[in-house]
């Protein structure tokens, strides 16, 4: 839920409340990662590195459901709906445009919740490897998760042979989103 403020508050205050939204969302990704079979058998160092490089991408997948590409609106969990134009004032215009485009593509695949969860697990373990020590262990985990995702998707929709590859094609999109936007600035007031 994100209490993006009514017009009465300054954009600085709006931005601070928006920034606060990320903290619980990041913590949920950490808990999600720990529930991925095999993730906690990686070294602690590698778990932290994967989370640092992959969490933004997992958040982008999670936030997709908030975006309505047809109406160009974002509805936060507290029910507040904002048009793209009103959110542009927060200075996240380019990220929002990219998010609408990404959520349209991912949304068109109509994934079930468990398929989406498995996809997010693949997203996390497919994150940048530059800081990883035991690369082979991460590669093995990624391979197992991709195999599980493929068998779940093909067993559910055997007639759609392109669905799985379309889904994997979202991974480079996410990496681009990450490279372009994870350096966006957040602001926190320190009282």
């Amino acid at each position: 839920s994100c209490p993006v403020a009514p017009a009465s508050r300054s954009s600085q205050e709006v931005w601070e409340s928006f920034s606060q939204c990320f903290t619980p969302a990041v913590k949920e990704v950490v808990e999600f990662a720990k529930s991925i079979p095999g993730f906690q058998s990686l070294s602690q160092h590698d778990q932290v590195m994967l989370l640092k490089s992959g969490t933004f991408q997992v958040l982008m997948v999670r936030f997709c459901s908030l975006f309505d590409p047809k109406e160009r609106t974002v509805t936060f969990l507290n029910g507040q709906t904002y048009s793209l134009a009103s959110l542009r004032a927060l200075g996240m215009g380019s990220l929002l445009d990219a998010m609408f485009e990404f959520s349209e593509k991912l949304g068109s695949l109509c994934l079930e919740p468990d398929e989406m969860a498995l996809f997010m697990a693949v997203v996390l373990v497919s994150a940048d490897r530059s800081g990883i020590v035991e690369v082979a262990a991460v590669e093995k985990l990624q391979e197992n998760l991709i195999k599980a995702l493929r068998s779940l998707i093909t067993s559910r929709r055997p007639e759609d042979s392109t669905l799985f590859s379309k889904l994997l094609l979202r991974l480079p999109d996410l990496r681009t989103l990450n490279n372009h936007h994870s350096d966006k600035l957040l602001a926190f007031r320190i009282d």
Partner: peptide, 25 residues
């Protein structure tokens, strides 16, 4: 006067992850 701390999204994410793992050690 109010002071503000500005950090990138990536740094904010890293900070929370480091804190979480440090707490659970």
């Amino acid at each position: 006067t109010k002071t503000h701390r500005v950090m990138t999204l990536a740094d904010h994410i890293s900070h929370i992850i480091t804190q979480d793992f440090a707490r659970n050690q």
